[in-house]
Design a protein around this nucleic acid. Structure first.
Lengths: 173, 173
DNA sequence: ATCTGGTTTCAGTATTTACTGAAAGTTCAT
DNA sequence: ATGAACTTTCAGTAAATACTGAAACCAGAT
């Protein structure tokens, strides 16, 4: 193996490690983030066994996290003709990755949060005390904000790369 | 205690619980998020003992998380004259809360991630193989994106509420 | 209908993260 | 300098989370 491929593997390993740490800080399972990093930088599709081997993890663990990544839309299953095995391939376009994460987090976390805020707001709708009114008002403010974030998420998730770039320009003008 | 105050306490409890769950999903310690929710909806400043009592947690736990919240700029220490005890008060303005979280996450997580991406990019700068070039390119794309996110964070963190509203209008036009 | 190459599940275990409570430390009044 | 009121630390423990590996399952080839 040439010096260059060794260096490449080292760099990749560094990336996988760091992406794992970063994921953990954002509430994503470390292994899931590592598999994602691995596939994002894989020149070819990879099988479950290759992932297991590279990261030195068990079959069950690899399986669960690969399926989770599929459910997040961050990787997809590829089948080679003639082969029974499943292979995996990551979405590599950064903007697309962002869109998908935005869409899923909105669906899984923002929307339920919004629901709660609305309940809390409704529950304090008719309160007469200053404290009750203050609480109601606070819930209202939070709801407005989170609902704004939610709409943002929708908007972003449906935006094409080019459009996003233009918007970004506007933002920094 | 009137019916209304009971209902208010229930609603508040619901909010505290849910805010805790939401925090956990975003990589924030559940108790920290709960204390934050509690203080955000507190009509008055609260002491460590009151927080301990309300959430049924130990002194050490309350202390650590209160200090962490202070370091995130989400609550501040208030001293009453004549009293030796420290009291805590939350920032209640939603936009301000968002700004502070954005600023801290950028500082604590985005900037270090950027550092790593730059290293990985640099390490593969001169590679000749197609794989090496692809890796370098991928790191470049990620770096551009994260660096954009970082600048976004700065921008948002330094924006006044009114300005943000105007920008939001533009966004949805 | 059985075997082979593969996927999926899950009880048990390991690891990580968070929490407790008591002791040590600090600060201020006397 | 002593003590009361409060804050901080941290070793030990509990709880939550993630991982393993083996068994069950499934689909297609023979």
């Amino acid at each position: 193996m040439s010096d260059e491929s060794v260096r490449l593997e080292e760099a990749r390993e560094e990336f996988v490690t760091q992406w794992g740490i970063m994921g953990a800080q954002w509430g994503i399972n470390r292994t899931m983030a590592q598999i994602h990093a691995l596939l994002m930088t894989a020149p070819e599709v990879m099988s479950t066994d290759e992932v297991m081997e590279t990261l030195a993890i068990s079959r069950g663990n690899a399986h669960t996290n690969l399926k989770d990544l599929v459910s997040w839309g961050l990787i997809r299953i590829v089948t080679k003709k003639g082969e029974r095995k499943e292979f995996f391939e990551a979405e590599k376009d950064v903007w697309e990755i962002f869109r998908r994460v935005a869409r899923e987090r909105k669906r899984r976390e923002i929307d339920p949060a919004l629901e709660t805020l609305r309940n809390c707001k409704a529950a304090s709708e008719d309160m007469k005390s200053a404290e009750g009114k203050a609480f109601h008002d606070q819930m209202g403010q939070l709801e407005d904000f989170v609902s704004f974030a939610s709409k943002m998420g929708d908007r972003v998730a449906s935006m094409q790369h080019g459009k996003a770039i233009k918007l970004a320009m506007k933002f920094f003008s």
